[in-house]
């Protein structure tokens, strides 16, 4: 079993000034929280559409990729990045090495790998292929053929 870091500590380390709340906490108190420059952590089961209207007042959004076969985070990232043009960072946490290229192309702007991938060369996995067969949320620097 992979060891899962506490995402809140982890994000605080990377983005020192940003405090994080859960999706439920945000929905409950978004009026107050929106003035504080806060980040929101989503679970794959959360309906990302519910925060669409308040994206301008969220600093950063964290998506959780711990479950290898659960692909909902990629669609969440797509909505935030491509559809709604969220301006803050979209952070993928508990990421798996073999899925980095999928996450990045779906719109994740930074990521934190699970602890168990320590020691692997991330660039071997995040750089992807010399050609991509579709347009996606992030096509930067890619050679597209479709």
């Amino acid at each position: 079993m992979d060891e899962i870091k506490n995402p809140i500590n982890l994000i605080n380390k990377e983005y020192k000034t940003i405090n994080l709340v859960t999706f439920e906490e945000w929905l409950e108190d978004s009026d107050k929280l929106s003035k504080l420059g806060i980040g929101v952590i989503l679970d794959p089961s959360n309906d990302v559409g519910l925060i669409k209207e308040s994206l301008d007042s969220i600093e950063l959004i964290v998506l959780d990729f711990r479950n290898f076969d659960d692909g909902r985070g990629y669609s969440q990232a797509y909505f935030l990045s491509k559809r709604w043009k969220f301006k803050g960072e979209i952070v993928g946490i508990n990421a798996h090495l073999d899925q980095l290229q999928f996450m990045i192309r779906s719109g994740i702007t930074s990521y934190q790998l699970l602890e168990s991938y320590k020691g692997f060369n991330e660039e071997d996995y995040s750089s992807g292929f010399s050609i991509c067969y579709q347009a996606a949320a992030n096509n930067s620097g890619l050679n597209l053929k479709y």
Binding site: Y78, Y133, Q134
Partner: peptide, 17 residues
């Protein structure tokens, strides 16, 4: 062929239910 290409390692739809 065009549809096959488009969904070849598609970033959003490679981990479906």
């Amino acid at each position: 062929e065009l549809i096959r290409r488009w969904f070849n390692l598609h970033p959003e739809f490679s981990w479906l239910p």
